[in-house]
Design a protein around this nucleic acid. Sequence first.
DNA 1: TTGTTGCATACATGCAGCCTGTATGTTATT
DNA 2: AATAACATACAGGCTGCATGTATGCAACAA
Lengths: 208, 208
Amino acid sequence: MQQESERRSNRDRTEATRADLIRAARKLFTENSYAETGTPEIVAEAGVTRGALYHHFADKQALFAAVVEQEAAAVAGEIDHASPPSLSARDALIAGSDAYLKAMRAPGRTRLLLLDGPAVLGRAAMDEIDNRHGNRSLREGLVAAMRAQAMIRLPVEALTALLAAAFDRAALAIEAGASGEDYRAVLIALMDGLSPAPPPSKRPAPSR
Amino acid sequence: MQQESERRSNRDRTEATRADLIRAARKLFTENSYAETGTPEIVAEAGVTRGALYHHFADKQALFAAVVEQEAAAVAGEIDHASPPSLSARDALIAGSDAYLKAMRAPGRTRLLLLDGPAVLGRAAMDEIDNRHGNRSLREGLVAAMRAQAMIRLPVEALTALLAAAFDRAALAIEAGASGEDYRAVLIALMDGLSPAPPPSKRPAPSR
DNA sequence: TTGTTGCATACATGCAGCCTGTATGTTATT
DNA sequence: AATAACATACAGGCTGCATGTATGCAACAA
């Protein structure tokens, strides 16, 4: 007799195996680091062999990129879910900030997305991923704030990148045991500092 | 007969060999990445054998840490040199910022200090190094600005870390080809935003 | 002072284990 | 039958350690 429940289409097989590999890799990459996790360990956790891994991914780095991509999308999802468009510009930014910091508390996420990610894939590749996921909502929030006259006009790309960097560092510091309140307060102060100064004292904005 | 110029004290030998190894490692770690640089390559560049390397350093990571330490000190030196205490608080911060961005243009420094460093040594170890070198002058500048009433009072550690993170990201972006003017403008706007603005209901602003 | 003796330091060499990527073989799907 | 999805075997390289060797050094002796 032939095993009846084992018959799966090729597409299903591929999807299942890829998902198993990504899940196993995510688990091990977050528990330990990228460098400390070997492909033998990953395939053992996934229940396949190294042949399957190298059939579906070009190399270990490509598997890592898939994990990062998935994790970045998950973080972005949590942020979008937490900052509905009904809020004011400032409130939306703060809600998004809190959601980001909360999302990054998931164990190992900071190392995966903020330490190993840039080092393994390079900053350019990470920026590309971030711009499709996490940074997107931040940039939209900043543009909305500028449109609503709640924020001075600045180069949007640069501002997005630098604020995102500050958020990233805050997430790392908080995970390392720093005061979340302190970091949150500074982040909000940095953003509030960009609100347009009231008319009486005209502040020298970077005119160009 | 024994060649007299070959006779060196043990301390001289150690110093010279360590310096050769660090110099070679710095060259290769900045040209390529930490992971892509093997110890055989390093010792060949330094003109010694792997035995010498493992005699002076516990492992490859320890050699890397020595390189990072030296490079961080070099950057801090350039910053201190460029921002004399004669400047006003705000001017000192801007001069320091420019000096930092300029120092980080040295080829490979961003990868060494901002990508590989945190990933290989961990953020905690990098913070410890930064706090002894680069971040120190930044924190002092911020404290001075707060004392001079040129900046609102915020948790100093958190503010230093977040601004440093923004500087780091700016250095990476500029190296990647982004507009240095844009990033400089945003960095200055972020710092200027922390000056005590006179809101309609709050404290009187110190005129300057 | 000079020479000798004993030990510590500074390396060089060889080995063991692991890992990555690929090439080849086998099984399941179409 | 052809192709995709795997499994297995292999080659090359790298890291860390263990062992071997030469050089510096300190103390003591003559």
